[in-house]
Design a protein around this nucleic acid. Structure first.
Ligand SMILES: [Mn+2]
Ligand SMILES: [Mn+2]
Ligand SMILES: [Zn+2]
Ligand SMILES: [Zn+2]
Lengths: 135, 135
DNA sequence: AATATAATTGTAATCATTACAAAGTAGTAT
DNA sequence: ATACTACTTTGTAATGATTACAATTATATT
């Protein structure tokens, strides 16, 4: 995805295009690590010295609200963000703290118990030790 | 589960038994609503005026650490706690904020992609609108 | 009963996030 | 082009959840 694609994504969602918003989207597009606000801020701030943390929060809230970005709450204290909004699971290594994606057939989970519930989002979070850390 | 059972659960996990810890466990046993620290504190504080919020945090951290209680991070800002540690899914209504349990065959999710990962916990979080709120 | 160990409490500190107001930016109508 | 308007960005202050810490209190062991 290039900057044009990202710009169009914003326009489709009626989010006004700005330099900062493009930069945040671009960051998420290039860093598929489910970054925290602080990681995004620290990295982008090197490049854009005027950038404010508040702008990152505002932007991410707008992106999540619009559905362009997914909020990940696998951490108990810090929000993480994922530009990949397709259904997939997240595995957090308790040692190295990395968050891995994995395929999971979430649609097969829809249980009859929830037939009268309107489901807007589904998340599958696993925790444990990743292969790199279990050697 | 009575107080004796709860006491034994603590002993089995080598958590020293105290009045406060029993009360927190008893609260979780009687309130299957996935309460927050504040809900637990506000309710128990009526009965035990000397109770400190810090004790509730300490106790819950010990209970989660030991595996007696499950930490629920379906909220983006507040931890919730569940005495039911069996595998089951959680549905959060975005209107009334209630969190519902539902059966889900989580074991069927173990994907081959994760065959070299050591999995310690699995969580399934859905969000949407519950039947009471969608009328 | 004396001692050692651990739990509880209250307060202060920390961390993530939001609120808010001032300043900046871009588009539109005149 | 200028004035107007609406929106975004920024910096700082405020909030809310959680943890750190030290003094006090309770529990267990000798
Ligand atoms: Mn992901
Ligand atoms: Mn539950
Ligand atoms: Zn790891
Ligand atoms: Zn509801």
């Amino acid at each position: 995805m290039n900057i044009n694609d990202l710009t169009n994504k914003l326009k489709e969602k009626n989010i006004k295009v700005s330099f900062q918003r493009i930069k945040v989207l671009e960051y998420l597009n290039n860093n598929r690590t489910h970054p925290t606000v602080d990681q995004i801020y620290n990295d982008l701030h090197l490049e854009i010295t005027s950038l404010s943390r508040t702008t990152i929060y505002n932007t991410l809230n707008a992106l999540v609200e619009s559905g362009l970005v997914k909020l990940i709450t696998i951490d108990d204290n810090t929000s993480r963000y994922d530009i990949d909004t397709r259904n997939h699971g997240h595995f957090k290594c308790q040692t190295c703290k990395n968050i891995y994606d994995f395929k999971v057939n979430i649609d097969s989970l829809s249980e009859k118990e929830l037939k009268d519930f309107e489901i807007n989002s589904k998340d599958v979070y696993f925790k444990g030790i990743c292969p790199n850390c279990s050697i």
